[in-house]
Each structure stands twice: as structure tokens, then as C-alpha cells.
């Protein structure tokens, strides 16, 4: 499965467009991490727990999108976009969407 955020794949042709595929997830960290983040607000610096949270969320959302693309028979997702929104304190929604397409086979190596 090829996933990119440009509209074409260099050297490959798009045979069929299968429409938009999406994946989303809402995740939260446990309260302990939230309290630690509160302390960080005094000293500043990176919130590792939240960075991790966003990374997990992104992985999850992308997996869901890829699963959806596979289910309709695509072999690539192009023009992928991310959207993030916060719902409540410590929870974030991550939404990822793209266009599922069928690509031709890669040209034989020169």
C-alpha cells in the first residue's frame, strides 16, 4: 500500500479512482500523564506524553484508512490530509483522509 500526500505517483499511472477513504480516532492519556503535563506548564518544555499520544492516534487513524482502502480494492492512497481537533482537555481527535486509487504495475527496472 502506497500512501502519499501528492496527487500522482512518479512513474506509475492511476488506473481507477475509488473515491475518498477516511480514518479517525479519538484518544486520551490517563490522568497521571495529564497531571504531569500540568507540572510541565510551570517549567515549559516538550510534553513527551502528548507527542506520543498524537503519534499513536495518527498510526491508528492511518491504519483504519488503509484498511478501508484495502477493503475496496485499492493499492494506493493519494492526496492524504490530516486534521486534528481537540474535544476536551487531554483528548484529541485525529482525522485522516485521502483518495483511494488503483495503480498500474511498476515499470520493469531499466
Amino acid at each position: 500500500m502506497i500512501v502519499t500526500n501528492i496527487e500522482i505517483i512518479p512513474g506509475r499511472r492511476v488506473l481507477r479512482h475509488l473515491g475518498m477513504v477516511t480514518g479517525s480516532t479519538v484518544r486520551a492519556k490517563h490522568a497521571g500523564k495529564d497531571i504531569m503535563a500540568g507540572f510541565k506548564n510551570i517549567f515549559g518544555g516538550e510534553l513527551k506524553a502528548y507527542t506520543e499520544l498524537m503519534q499513536e492516534a495518527r498510526e491508528e487513524a492511518m491504519q483504519r484508512m488503509i484498511a478501508q482502502a484495502k477493503a475496496i480494492g485499492a493499492n494506493a492512497v493519494i492526496n492524504v490530509r490530516f486534521a486534528t481537533s481537540s474535544i476536551t482537555v487531554g483528548a484529541a481527535e485525529l482525522f485522516v483522509y485521502g483518495t483511494a486509487v488503483v495503480l498500474d504495475e511498476p515499470a520493469p527496472q531499466a
Binding site: I2, V3, T4, N5, I6, E7, I8, I9, P10, G11, A37, K40, N41, I42, F43, G44, G45, E46, L47, Y50, T51, M54, Q55, R58, V80, F82, P106, A107, Q109, A110
Partner: peptide, 28 residues
Amino acid sequence: RLPPPQPGAVECTLVVGSCVVAFDYFKS
């Protein structure tokens, strides 16, 4: 949006990086 023409075959993959930073008390 699109890469300049490439010599030879290329592959493309989505890459992501993220970072969460907190305000400190003084900055706020």
C-alpha cells in the same frame, strides 16, 4: 505540490513528524 522531474525510478512515502510543547509559567 509535485516533485521536479526525477532521473530514474523513485518511490514515495508519507512521512510525518510532530511535537507538543507546553508554555511555562513565566511565558504565560
